[in-house]
């Protein structure tokens, strides 16, 4: 029987990611640094306009989501594009692992590395900025932000297949900053003009951040946000699978 998923490959993907110091810096340390920079300008009692949520807690969730997004998006897209170019994907096609296995291992490998990004931001927020939440909230936040990052892992795979060579980095950057800022990861969308808010509402990053914010405010995530994320996951993963097939035919 062919296996559709390889732990060996996932393990090795995680291992090589941990060895990549530049990547570890950008995905693990960088979100915490940005968190401290942004939240440092606010006092600890200010709240997000129209809500009871403190800005400290708001930014904690935003930056944890942002960090997870960075890790999976940057990690997957550039690496896959590079591996396609170097022919590693071709070589891997000559093993018993089917293409789906490669894509799934990539998503899983990126997903595992996301956890430290999230946890480090939480530790910094709790330790330095004194953010306090119930135990269930910490757990739910970790789980949701982590699960939500898989949507962007799939997007990363898709970008890795669509762009190649020098184009990958700028394409990833534009999508990454565009989604982060417009989705409200860097500032609450309540400060946006109305027309921008209505666009933002439908972005995966907005739904992603909203998952965490709902939990922070003591509620459960909105069905609409979950539905949006599921729809994007299907879109990105389907796109990645389609692009992979196309790549098989020509490369």
């Amino acid at each position: 029987m062919t296996h559709y998923f390889s732990w060996s490959l996932t393990r090795l993907e995680v291992l090589r990611t941990l060895r990549n110091k530049k990547f570890m810096f950008f995905s693990v340390i960088y979100p915490s640094v940005i968190y401290l920079l942004i939240s440092g300008t606010q006092n600890t009692t200010d709240t997000v306009p129209d809500t009871d949520l403190t800005l400290q807690a708001f930014f904690m969730v935003s930056m944890a989501s942002f960090g997870a997004l960075t890790a999976v998006l940057m990690g997957n897209s550039e690496r896959i594009a590079k591996e396609r170019e170097k022919g590693w994907v071709r070589q891997l096609r000559l093993t018993a692992l089917p293409g789906r296995g490669y894509v799934l291992s990539k998503i899983a490998g990126a997903g595992i590395v996301t956890l430290p990004c999230i946890v480090v931001v939480f530790l910094v927020a709790a330790g330095v900025k004194g953010v306090r939440l119930d135990a269930w909230q910490w757990l739910a936040l970790t789980g949701l932000i982590w699960a939500g990052s898989l949507v962007f892992a799939a997007l990363g795979v898709a970008i890795g297949y669509v762009a190649s060579g020098d184009a990958v980095r700028p394409v990833t950057m534009i999508i990454y900053f565009g989604l982060s800022i417009l989705g409200g990861l860097w500032m609450p969308t309540t400060v946006f003009p109305q027309w921008l808010r209505s666009i933002s509402e439908w972005l995966p990053t907005h739904a992603y951040a909203a998952l965490g914010q709902a939990v922070e405010m003591g509620g459960s995530p909105h069905a609409k946000d979950i539905a949006i994320l599921c729809a994007y996951f299907v879109l990105f993963a389907g796109g990645a699978a389609w692009l992979y097939r196309k790549d098989t035919l020509k490369a």
Binding site: T2, L12, L15, R16, R19, N20, E83, E85, K86, G87, W88, V89, R90, Q91, R93, L94, T95, A96, P98
Partner: peptide, 20 residues
Amino acid sequence: AIAAGRVGAMLQTGGLMEDV
């Protein structure tokens, strides 16, 4: 045949995984 482990291949264009 490849999935069944019947074929081994060494390609000129076959790259290797890095950082391992």
